[in-house]
């Protein structure tokens, strides 16, 4: 039985089609990423899968239970971390956890034990009796995660768990996701951070404007676009004509300047390496470093969503 089974899901808000015939499934124990730019339909998908919002068409089930017909039973299996850190500012961290546990009918002993463990895990134990009003953004996010786990869910929904957080909060959250995965918890996370999807997910669905463009493991997705390989080179001296020179080299389809390095996109890295070496010799420039790269998930993303705005060496995503 699949943890999540989604079939031909459609959601319209008036004239706007937020989800357009979305189908996918997530097996038990998997960490599944929903990667897409702003407005792609990530939160809409989570709101349907958690039974908050009803789809215009299609079906979704959680561990075999239909989310529309069997909403309550499906929800018992899940923990939800909403996009906004929706904690009660006027309650303490502890009271927030107790309240959430009570909504899930977690018994008193169990919820107190669980809450203490989670506060410890997220580095909030010392602040347990402080009102949340004074918490930093990262602390609120971590508390939101703790609240999502207080009922020991088999399936965890994370809507952009790490967006806008500092390195420390980020690392704690990534570690927790990894541990949960090791314990067999299924994780469904949304993100617009490609690196996060690459690091955390077994499989990734790329979604754009309500449609799924591709679903596969990060490595397999990268393989689908072998043409976007690159050679990265750094020289010991600068030259104003360098970008133009490099663009003229045989086999180079595009050049990006990245810090003190240049990234040359190509279908044939070995041809480009020979050309770069010859060019350096001719220019009397020393090569400081030279490395080759396969396609990144970012490249896949740009290719599939057509979102990259590629101007003179600058690539932006969302």
């Amino acid at each position: 039985m699949q943890a999540i089974e989604v079939s031909h899901l459609t959601k319209r808000f008036g004239n706007l089609t937020a989800l357009d015939d979305v189908s996918f499934s997530v097996s038990g124990g998997e960490t599944f990423g929903f990667l897409g730019p702003n407005g792609a339909g990530k939160t809409t998908t989570i709101r349907i899968l958690t039974g908050i919002s009803t789809p215009t068409g299609g079906t979704a089930s959680i561990f075999g239970k239909d989310i529309i017909r069997d909403t309550i039973a499906s929800r018992k299996e899940m923990g939800i971390v909403h996009e906004t850190s929706n904690v009660y500012d006027d309650l303490t961290a502890w009271q927030n956890l107790m309240f959430t546990a009570e909504l899930y009918a977690v018994g008193k002993q169990m919820r107190e034990k669980r809450a203490a463990e989670l506060l410890d895990l997220f580095g909030l134990l010392e602040r347990r009796d402080d009102r949340v009003r004074g918490f930093s953004k990262g602390m609120k996010r971590r508390l939101t995660l703790a609240m999502g786990l207080v009922n020991n869910p088999r399936l965890l929904f994370l809507d952009e768990p790490t967006s806008g957080l500092d390195v420390q909060s980020n690392l704690i959250i990534r570690d927790v996701i990894r541990d949960l995965n090791a314990q067999g918890v299924t994780v469904f996370l949304t993100t617009h951070n490609i690196e996060e999807a690459n690091l955390a997910c077994d499989r990734v669905a790329i979604i754009n404007r309500g449609r799924i463009a591709a679903i596969d493991s990060p490595e397999r997705l990268k393989k689908t676009i072998q043409s976007v390989q690159s050679v990265e080179v750094a020289f010991d001296s600068a030259s104003p004509r360098r970008m133009d020179d490099l663009r003229q080299l045989p086999g180079v389809s595009e050049v990006r300047k990245e810090g003190d390095k240049f990234r040359l996109f190509t279908e044939d890295p070995s041809l480009v390496i020979d050309a770069v070496t010859a060019y350096a010799k001719a220019e009397n420039a020393r090569i400081l470093s030279l490395s080759t790269f396969g396609p990144s998930l970012e490249d896949v993303f740009i290719r599939l969503t057509g979102l990259g705005i590629r101007t003179r060496g600058v690539t932006t995503v969302d």
Binding site: T50, I72, A73, R75, N86, V87, T100, L103, Y104, A105
Partner: peptide, 14 residues
């Protein structure tokens, strides 16, 4: 406004 309402309407109760 602060989205805590989502907690209430996504709880495993009617």
């Amino acid at each position: 406004r602060v989205r805590t309402f989502d907690r209430l309407v996504s709880a495993p109760v009617s």
